[in-house]
Simulated assay, not measured.
Amino acid sequence: MGKQVYRFDKDGYFREPVIIAPDADGKYTIPDDCTDVELPQPCFEPRFNREKGAWEDITREEWLAKQPPQPRQKTETEILTEKIEVMQKALDNLILGGDA
């Protein structure tokens, strides 16, 4: 049976969970870039502090502030309204023979 540990990069940021196997004596050797300290929940940008032996994290608000703004998607009504306007202009051009 294995043991789950948590790998972090050179700056301490979480990278991935890892399953390690016991040695012949049944003992687990945790790699230098891993810890068996569980991640905080919820976690947004967890970073392991080796000196404290604990995970540190940012708040949800801090994480959201770092995210690029997402463009608002048009509603179905807005899309249909635009299509109707384009069709109306095309009809006006056909019927009136130019810009109306």
Rank of each mutant, 00 (worst) to 15 (best):
G2K: 09
G2M: 08
K3F: 00
V5N: 03
V5R: 00
Y6H: 05
Y6A: 03
Y6L: 04
R7K: 13
R7I: 11
R7A: 09
R7N: 10
R7P: 10
F8G: 14
F8W: 07
F8Y: 07
F8Q: 03
F8C: 07
D9P: 06
D9I: 06
D9H: 12
D9G: 06
D9N: 15
K10W: 15
K10G: 12
D11M: 15
G12T: 02
Y13M: 14
Y13P: 06
Y13G: 13
F14K: 06
F14C: 02
F14P: 05
F14T: 09
F14I: 01
R15I: 09
R15N: 13
R15D: 08
E16L: 07
E16G: 04
P17R: 11
P17D: 13
V18A: 13
V18Q: 08
V18G: 09
I19H: 01
I19M: 08
I20V: 04
I20M: 01
I20P: 00
A21I: 05
A21H: 03
P22M: 10
P22R: 04
D23W: 05
A24T: 13
A24M: 05
A24F: 04
A24K: 01
D25G: 06
D25Q: 13
G26S: 15
G26E: 04
G26W: 07
K27T: 02
K27Q: 11
Y28N: 05
T29N: 02
T29W: 12
I30Y: 14
P31W: 06
D32N: 07
D32C: 09
D33A: 08
C34M: 07
C34E: 08
C34L: 08
C34A: 09
T35E: 13
T35C: 12
T35Q: 06
D36R: 02
D36G: 09
D36A: 03
V37C: 10
V37R: 14
E38Q: 09
L39C: 02
L39I: 02
L39S: 05
P40Y: 10
Q41W: 14
Q41K: 11
Q41F: 15
P42D: 09
P42K: 14
P42Q: 15
C43T: 06
C43D: 12
F44K: 11
F44C: 02
E45M: 15
E45S: 13
E45G: 02
P46N: 08
P46Q: 03
P46E: 13
R47N: 01
R47H: 15
R47F: 11
R47E: 14
R47V: 00
R47D: 07
R47L: 01
F48N: 14
R50Y: 04
R50H: 03
E51S: 11
K52A: 07
G53Y: 14
G53C: 02
G53I: 08
A54F: 13
A54K: 07
W55L: 02
W55F: 02
W55C: 00
D57M: 12
D57N: 10
I58Y: 12
I58M: 02
I58Q: 06
I58H: 10
T59M: 12
T59K: 03
R60S: 05
R60V: 10
R60K: 04
R60I: 01
R60G: 01
E61Y: 00
E61H: 01
E62A: 10
E62M: 00
E62H: 07
